[in-house]
Design a protein around this nucleic acid. Structure first.
Lengths: 240, 240
DNA sequence: CGGCCGGTTGAACGATATCAAACACCGTGG
DNA sequence: CCACGGTGTTTGATATCGTTCAACCGGCCG
């Protein structure tokens, strides 16, 4: 456990930053944080803007401070698949590769704190603790990816939608803690994104959502806001 | 680069081990190798035997020395999905977790070199180089998983089969190097396994294989041995 | 021999895709 | 103010791909 009581020596940029607590920056000593903060800067990206292109040279990494970033892969004929979603305070980047194999795009309005690739890599050499955090995040992403492989390969459209809603609820709704059994949140993705995430078409996504609504498992307001009165009922439809 | 010319001080167990070169053990100094070798042992597992059960306590890690290990996840009603394949000299294990979230099963006859979880973890503390290798393998597995998500979510049955054959060819057939344009290999998986890997049924797998054979893209001998006279033609069917 | 296992093949069905139309919302410009 | 076009979403009719159910084949082993 690190002492976070004092803010002495913590860069202003970082004082109220979530990444300093739960993110990778939590691995750094105050003086390292100062060094890193010198070369980093916060910035916003509006929904839909591309953060990183496929086959593009990677020169910066970033922390997601708010919003949702989608990682996508596209086949030559245009078929697309979302292969990862990153929420705050996830680390965005692929160490040890100079070129990206995927696209990163802001799914919502996003705020980022980005730093030069070289800074992170230098700091990784110096701080095993940082490397370990990054390693752990990679393992978590791998666990998530494998979980989704089951969803993509073996679940029905209805189960996919239920699984997706559950995943979002867990990530976004603070009240969806283990004990609470209801949830309420805004979908960070359009129907098209959801389709790309689940390997479905937008029509199927729409139909399954209306079906869940008709069955009173969820309520939908303004197309984006979802209310789940009973998470257990939703889970029962996720097919795990 | 490590000097591998002398075998002085290299444990007998490790002298001719592939993992010492391309695997994680390559990160270790001779004396560390000696220490690790003391607590490790090689053993075989026959095809179909379970190496690690879901929700089982993890107490050993291992290197795959030969053969293929499949990582699977199963839904409560029995639907199964293969979420990873491990070839020599891959490292088998999930650091930082005490309980497995998946099943590991020998897909072929397999030989392993396994060590106590604690040994590896101690050594990881001592050797950043080892941790880095493990980190890199995790990133590679993540890349692979994401590649398969595209296959699972967006490709047709025919494309899935072609992609699968290509992946196996690249892993198994030594002659399938970039320059060579033909390949020949034994499938390490049964039709049922292939189906679980691709999110299909065995009937569909069988039909698509016969179709590829009918179209003269592949030749099949003894149900298991595959010959690909022209890898480019197979690639054209993988839909990337 | 008989039974089992892995694989192939056929026929019918059904879930999801595809094609098409309409709707709701929203900002723009007349 | 309303008409307009654009975007995201819903809904309906039809088509298609992959599943399901069933039969059969060949090799292997008891």
């Amino acid at each position: 456990m690190r002492k976070d009581v004092h803010t002495d020596g913590i860069p202003v940029l970082c004082v109220s930053c979530e990444a300093r607590h739960k993110g990778v920056c939590g691995a750094l000593e105050p003086e390292q944080l100062v060094a890193l903060a010198k070369t980093s800067h916060k910035h916003h990206a509006e929904s839909g803007s591309e953060l990183l292109g496929d086959a593009e040279k990677i020169d910066t990494y970033a922390n997601v401070l708010s919003g949702v970033v989608k990682l996508t892969k596209t086949l030559s004929d245009g078929r697309q698949q979302i292969v990862g979603l990153q929420f705050a305070p996830d680390f965005l980047g692929r160490p040890f590769k100079t070129e990206s194999e995927l696209n990163a795009e802001a799914a919502t309005e996003v705020s980022l704190c980005s730093f030069p690739k070289a800074s992170i890599e230098r700091m990784m050499q110096a701080s095993p603790e940082l490397e370990r955090r990054l390693y752990k995040q990679a393992l978590k992403e791998l666990d998530d990816a494998r979980e989704w492989m089951v969803t993509l390969g073996r679940k029905t459209a209805a189960e996919k939608i239920a699984s997706f809603l559950l995943m979002i609820a867990r990530h976004i709704d603070p009240s969806a803690a283990p004990d609470r059994n209801s949830a309420s949140f805004d979908l960070p993705l359009t129907r098209a994104d959801i389709a790309d995430f689940l390997g479905l078409t937008i029509e199927t996504v729409s139909r399954q959502l209306t079906r869940l609504r008709a069955d009173k498992v969820i309520t939908i307001e303004n197309n984006r806001h979802i209310l789940v009165p009973d998470l257990a009922r939703l889970e029962a439809r996720a097919g795990n």
